[in-house]
Nucleic acid binder design. Structure first.
Length: 988
RNA sequence: GCCGGGAUGGUGGAAUAGGUAGACACGCAAGACUUAAAAUCUUGUGGCCAUAUCGGCCGUGCGGGUUCGAUUCCCGCUCCUGGUACCA
């Protein structure tokens, strides 16, 4: 008897939705059968689905990471069902600061930490059941990968940007032009200070001079840039790491210092990067952010003479039409010119100001508009238009990195100049007609006054005339300026790609291509050297041997964005050792058809990738010049922290023994009490309850104490691990074992439950609100996780993670399972034809899914699945005609259960090789429509009418309705609006 | 500061061309099953008023506007949030 009942139990367990078994089975199947192996197949249309490159952090994957991956996986699987050859790869952007920071602290080589992190990430990702072709995994820190990052760097070094061809060309072709005609006719992107030379001069240059000159043209070059230098740490810090002029770690002073750094001439591509945005299908805000970042402005460059000096100040202005309104010049504090122009009588104040101002970060200076600061240099400039002498000031609102680092100030027509002039009592001279009542005004399009030769003109003509004047006199020109700056390409760090560059006579040369990859050397410590060199300065034999000697190699490494700027090409041909990716393969796969990732990459990664792609396109090694055709930006998943509230031990009492310390009670009150404590609304009974509890516990813990009373009831909130809280209810047993000090915790419950408080914060370890997918998968399975992440809301939206609704999704999957099984838990599907209602339920879902897929609206798809399954359950549908397409429909979202049902339905292959069911409108045709009838825009009645009715017939039916007549009070409506199939609105 | 994004019941969200606000789900409440609990199932559930069955008023962050009709469009705010060039 007992054996029999055990057997029954076993059978019923077998027949229930056993996600653990199912998911393991199918993940194994996909791996063994190579289901997601992608290969070039010119007979099928391709679809390239890409997720943003993850950095494998030590904390592992949290539930926010897979959000985008699940979405792209759904699209990928959907496209497979639609007959596409899908490339859906995954890999790791494995160079980065956190591993290096960890290495500094522990001495552990970053490669080891990185490897461990990747192993963990991969394991976590595999548990979610993504349709990734894992054979294509790449890692940026792998020498076989960064060999090609270095190779691309070498191509950039060997190229210049030619304006006539409007593309990058080989530096060799530039050299041959120099040899024949000098640089007079060459229209190319180069440094501002590039001199003009003839062919004869070029040919007479020494090797060193030639190389110096070429460096002014190369697409990657050495330039002096300002960095946050922290002498105590001996290193350069990011703006993030600097707080109010001190390092965030350690609180050491940070100064702005000029340093020779490698740069990339991304500005050469500024216009093409701008134009390219028109071709790609990205959200308008992201495009807008890139446009603003590139910041094209059309204006003029003006040279101002300095009185009594041969120095000149170059300014860029978009409003040269206001030049007669210039009342002072302002220089950036970090510009050399600023210090040079300080006169003796101003030296004390001006130099003190410069020293303070230049060490404020750019971001601080930009955000802080309230404190106006500056200093007069004592020097005067001469306005070339009217010969007026104007003061030269130093002001921290002028940034060295933008434009020329100097502005011509027109207080009357620029707000910041106006505030500055007001503050220092400088002249404000109006040159555009209008009212100055509310301070300055831009006056674009206004009549120009008080402006010598341009008085009486309007903006456009005035600018034209000014530019002509400037060019005639050789003291300026019309100019297009970009806000975007050249991208600094070196980091004084260890864990990055070494630059394939050595130095001879202080000038950079490329190593030979056959010597790639230049492998990252071993070092004893991951810190800078004692004399402030980057960590690579510690490497032994970090030199390059050539035929004529041995030379030092570059000590800096590449930034994080180097490896991630081209990885989408490597996925197409990840193992190729002779080229970064075979042309035939890059031609087949082409641009990424769907790129999902965060909008935080809008102006970094997404711009650099476009830049490198355009460059590779110019080289002719790829055929696309925009890498990401369609992009969706997923919103960040924030953490949802839970709190417990501990009663503060504010008691009175006395100790018998002075040396004895009281053991303080750990008593936590549930949220309901907490709310009342906060708003001081505790009833006297509730107060007594808390006081008694405190007293009781205290006496138990401290029998030798005399205890009088709890002075007042106050609590302190404490983060509690969200993983031991379910639907805001605390698991008391798990809480007691969470930390040793909580073992004796006591609780004041409401209705027998401890309810926690909650707050939305960033997901972080210290807030105990990190939820990793493993726990969810353990409890509910990967299919539930996938569905739930989608169900949480629109992909693009920022949203806090909470598992409050996850039960509903799990229940849904069980309902799906039950559709295919009878009450006894046996697989039971009928071959009988489906009813009209059943087909309608199915086809409504098919239609909705297709629409949602086109809009990337995944949350609504999950809802429509639920509706469909609820309807089919109510209809007790078990027809193969419905259940077979339903399994396919659900398979992109919940692939494991779908595969299992598919095989139960008698199919031998993977469901991914099946065909997406075709939508048939005929099942959805309705003959009637329930019209909402509105009176003055408010819904007052509903009317079920045939859709075939004409407008007058609808009106007649509406007016006859009793509810309507009540509102009309016998009068005729003033206006009748009828939209057939939509609405009736009567205006009374 | 500048450049982006967001705000709808107790909660996540739906309303895809300006046309029934609150689909779907969670939670909660009541009931069924059970010795009991869990699980499951059924019903109800924006707020206020009400003759609590007819029904009415309010309601999509705030203040205005356009419209027969606004969560949706326009103008002005508030708060939260991403980026701001060495986090990736």
């Amino acid at each position: 008897m007992q054996a029999f009942s055990q057997k029954i139990k076993k059978i019923s367990i077998m027949a229930e939705y056993n996600f653990r078994e199912i998911e393991q089975k199918w993940q194994g199947y996909w791996k063994n059968k190579g289901t997601f192996k992608a290969e070039v197949d010119t007979n099928r249309p391709k679809f390239y689905s890409l997720d943003m490159f993850p950095y494998p952090s030590g904390a592992g994957l949290h539930v926010g990471h897979p959000l985008g991956y699940i979405a792209s996986d759904i699209v990928s699987r959907f496209k497979m069902l639609k007959g596409f050859n899908v490339l859906h790869p995954m890999g790791y952007d494995s160079f980065g600061l956190p591993a290096e920071q960890y290495a500094i602290q522990t001495g552990q080589h970053p490669a080891i930490t990185t490897e461990q992190n990747i192993t963990r990430y991969t394991e976590q990702l595999k548990n979610i059941g993504f349709a990734f072709d894992w054979d294509r995994e790449v890692r940026t820190s792998d020498p076989s990968y960064y060999k090609w990052t270095q190779w691309i760097f070498m191509q950039l070094f060997s190229s210049y940007y030619d304006h006539d061809a409007d593309k990058a060309l080989s530096i060799d072709s530039l050299i041959s032009r120099f040899e024949k005609e000098g640089n007079g006719k060459v229209k190319a992107v180069c440094d501002d200070d590039t001199p003009t030379f003839s062919a004869a001069e070029w040919n007479s240059f020494s090797e060193k001079e030639k190389q110096e000159m070429l460096l002014k043209y190369r697409l990657t070059f050495l330039a002096e840039t300002t960095v946050n230098w922290c002498p105590a740490l001996g290193t350069v810090l990011s703006n993030d790491e600097v707080k109010d002029g001190f390092s965030e770690r350690g609180g050491h002073p940070v100064e702005r210092k000029k340093m020779m750094q490698w740069s990339m001439r991304i500005t050469a591509y500024a216009d093409r990067l701008l134009q390219g945005l028109e071709k790609v299908d990205w959200s308008e805000p992201i495009k807008e952010m890139q446009r603003n970042w590139i910041g094209k402005s059309i204006g003029a460059e003006v040279l101002f003479d300095v009185k009594g000096s041969d120095k000149k100040i170059k300014v860029f202005t978009t409003r040269v039409d206001t030049i007669y309104g210039v009342t002072y010049l302002a220089l950036a504090p970090e510009s050399d010119l600023a210090s040079e122009l300080v006169t003796d009588d101003q030296r004390d104040t001006a130099e003190a100001y410069i020293n303070v101002a230049k060490n404020r970060s750019e971001r601080e200076r930009m955000s802080d508009v309230k404190t106006i600061s500056g200093a007069f240099t004592g020097s005067y400039a001469i306005n070339p238009f009217n010969g007026e002498e104007i003061q030269i000031w130093v002001a921290d609102y002028v940034l060295a990195g933008y434009g020329t680092g100097a502005v011509m100030a027109v207080p009357a027509h620029d707000e910041r100049d106006y505030n500055f002039a007001k503050h220092f009592g400088l002249e404000i001279r109006q040159v555009i007609k209008g009212s100055m009542e509310n301070g300055s005004f831009p006056g674009k399009g206004g009549l120009i006054i008080n402006s010598g030769m341009i008085s009486g003109l309007y903006m456009k003509d005035a600018m034209q005339k000014c530019i002509e004047f400037l060019e005639e006199k050789g003291i300026g020109k019309g100019k297009i300026q970009f806000r975007m700056r050249d991208a600094i390409f070196t980091r004084q760090r260890y864990w990055g790609e070494p630059l394939p560059v050595y130095f001879k006579d202080g000038l950079p040369y490329l190593i030979e291509e056959k010597d790639l990859p230049l492998v990252l050397p071993e070092v004893d410590k991951y810190l800078p050297t004692e004399d402030g060199e980057p960590p690579l300065g510690r490497a032994k034999d970090w030199t390059y041997k050539t035929a004529d000697g041995e030379y030092p190699l570059e000590l800096s490494t590449m930034p994080g964005w180097a490896g991630s700027s081209w990885y989408f090409f490597r996925y197409m041909d990840p193992k190729n050792d002779s080229v970064f990716a075979d042309k035939a393969k890059t031609d087949y796969w082409g641009a990424v058809d769907l790129y999902i990732g965060g909008s935080e990459h809008a102006t970094g990664h997404l711009l650099y990738s476009r830049f490198w792609t355009k460059f590779l396109y110019d080289l002719g090694v790829v055929s696309i010049d925009e890498p990401f055709q369609k992009m969706i930006n997923q919103g960040m998943i924030q953490g949802r922290s839970n709190f417990v509230y501990r009663i503060k031990p504010l008691f009175t009492g006395s100790k018998e023994n002075e040396s004895e310390k009281a053991i303080l009670p750990m008593i936590f009150v549930s949220k309901g009490y907490q709310d009342k404590i906060e708003s001081d609304k505790l009833s006297s009974e509730e107060k007594k309850l808390i006081e008694d509890k405190f007293k009781e516990v205290f006496k138990r813990l401290n029998p030798s104490y005399s205890y009088e009373s709890l002075q007042k009831i106050e609590t302190s909130a404490m983060h509690v691990d969200v993983n031991i809280v379910h639907n805001d209810q605390l698991n008391l047993d798990k809480f007691k074992t969470w930390r040793p000090d909580l073992a004796d915790a006591e609780f004041i419950l409401e209705d027998g439950k401890y309810i926690c408080g909650s707050e939305v914060e960033k997901m972080s370890k210290s807030k105990y609100n990190v939820v990793n997918p493993d726990d969810i998968i353990e409890r509910y399975g990967a299919d539930t996780l996938r569905l739930y992440e989608m169900f949480l809301g629109p992909l693009e939206q920022f949203k806090p993670w909470n598992t409050n609704g996850i039960d509903g999704v799990f229940k849904f999957l069980r309902k799906v399972w039950n559709l295919y099984h009878n009450a006894a838990g046996e697989f039971a599907v009928s071959d009988a034809p489906a009813s009209k209602e059943e087909m309608k339920a199915l086809h409504k879902a098919i239609k909705k899914l297709e629409e949602d897929m086109a809009n990337y609206s995944f949350n609504t798809s999950v809802s429509s699945f639920m509706i469909c399954v609820n309807e089919l359950t109510a209809l007790k549908c078990n027809k193969r005609e419905v259940l077979e397409p339903l399994a396919i429909l659900i398979s992109p979202y919940a692939p494991h259960i779908a595969e299992e049902l598919w095989s139960l339905l008698g199919h031998s292959g993977s469901i991914t090789t099946s065909k997406f069911p075709e939508f048939k409108e005929e099942y959805l045709v309705e003959s009637n429509f329930e019209y909402p009838v509105m009176i003055n825009g408010k819904m007052r009645a509903k009317l079920d009418l045939p859709l075939s009715l004409s407008v007058p017939e609808i009106e007649k039916a509406a007016l006859e309705d009793v509810h309507v007549q009540k509102w009309l009070e016998g009068k005729a409506p003033k206006k009748v609006i009828i939209v057939p199939g939509k609405i009736v609105n009567l205006v009374v």
